[in-house]
Design a protein around this nucleic acid. Sequence first.
DNA 1: GTCTATAATTCGATAGAC
DNA 2: GTCTATCGAATTATAGAC
Lengths: 208, 208
Amino acid sequence: MARRTGSSGERTAREIRAAAQRLFAEHGYAAVSMRQIAQEVGVQAGALYLYTSDKQSLLADLLIEHMEELLAAWDAARRDEADPATRLETFVRFHIRHHLRRVDKVFISYMELRNLSDENFLRVERLRRLYEQVVEDILHDGVAAGVFRVADPRVASLALIAMLTGITTWYRAGGRLPPERIERIYCDLAFGAVGGAAPAAAGRAAPA
Amino acid sequence: MARRTGSSGERTAREIRAAAQRLFAEHGYAAVSMRQIAQEVGVQAGALYLYTSDKQSLLADLLIEHMEELLAAWDAARRDEADPATRLETFVRFHIRHHLRRVDKVFISYMELRNLSDENFLRVERLRRLYEQVVEDILHDGVAAGVFRVADPRVASLALIAMLTGITTWYRAGGRLPPERIERIYCDLAFGAVGGAAPAAAGRAAPA
DNA sequence: GTCTATAATTCGATAGAC
DNA sequence: GTCTATCGAATTATAGAC
């Protein structure tokens, strides 16, 4: 009912992607049927196939776009010229902010990798590797500059990312800690972990 | 073929649990059929129902036993009398060692929580909360003793657990780093994150 | 204790009317 | 662009033979 006359194609396409994302996050890819997605959108199951070739590509598009969006957002937020400490703080705050606004996508991206075809899996992994390299480069430069002390920048970068992304498993909007406070706490944890001092301008509780 | 004469019930029960664990870890709970599990064990699908009431309890038993085993193992490994720094190092090494030997169970425990019934979910969550409290207590005592510096012990405990558990997503036996080296690296990261020094006896690279 | 056979659903995907 | 109807295959779980 209340169906738009004329072309509602673009709108329907967006709604299908949104419904798939919501349902995949809640129940898991394998547990969600095309009929459920259709019902969520308000169309019949057959209509979905006007917008996606099959269920698999509904998932693959979601994951690939998520990683591309993440990398593009970081390219927009990064500041190349900054010193390693400032770059690390920029990264920590960026990562937390970006991920807390996309909890569903983050969850799906971590859980449903094994449901991708081999080809799509490799694409996502390549993008993920690029993102991990961002952190590894920051740590490497910081060690070279003598401001960080880490035994293994590769492992430390994975440790930091896991620590930061873990926030999405417990964070609830309106919870005990506001996002700004969470960012500060995790900046302190991250800088401590890599043996560095937060930049004076915005780091841990200023001395004065 | 080669079926045991007489009672192979106990053996079959174990094999069913092992097959379910392996397949759930590889493909996900919803994507695995009872027929697949039966084939892995070498019986027909109908025979599974002599050992489990349904597919759901196959998962629930796995997750609940995993958490109970984790808590029991920690009770056996902990040393109550130790100072907070030693307790933290004991915990970090215990957590890594325990989890790296149970990668499949860890993965399932994190991924399949939403496929539990409400009652089983609450049981698992209660056990998980107990384990998180172990770390929070160590951090709290360390702050009180002046050997750690953390702004929020609750958040820091979740951050540490996420960081440590993340190892299971990339660790491969025979990889670049042996387990002992990984433990050392993560001890350093953990002590740095909480602003503490590793205990002299076994902490970061000894001065001599 | 295990098998075979099957009931009752549900699935992904397609065909064709409108 | 969407719906209805449906195909063929898969699903969980049970019944009853041995």
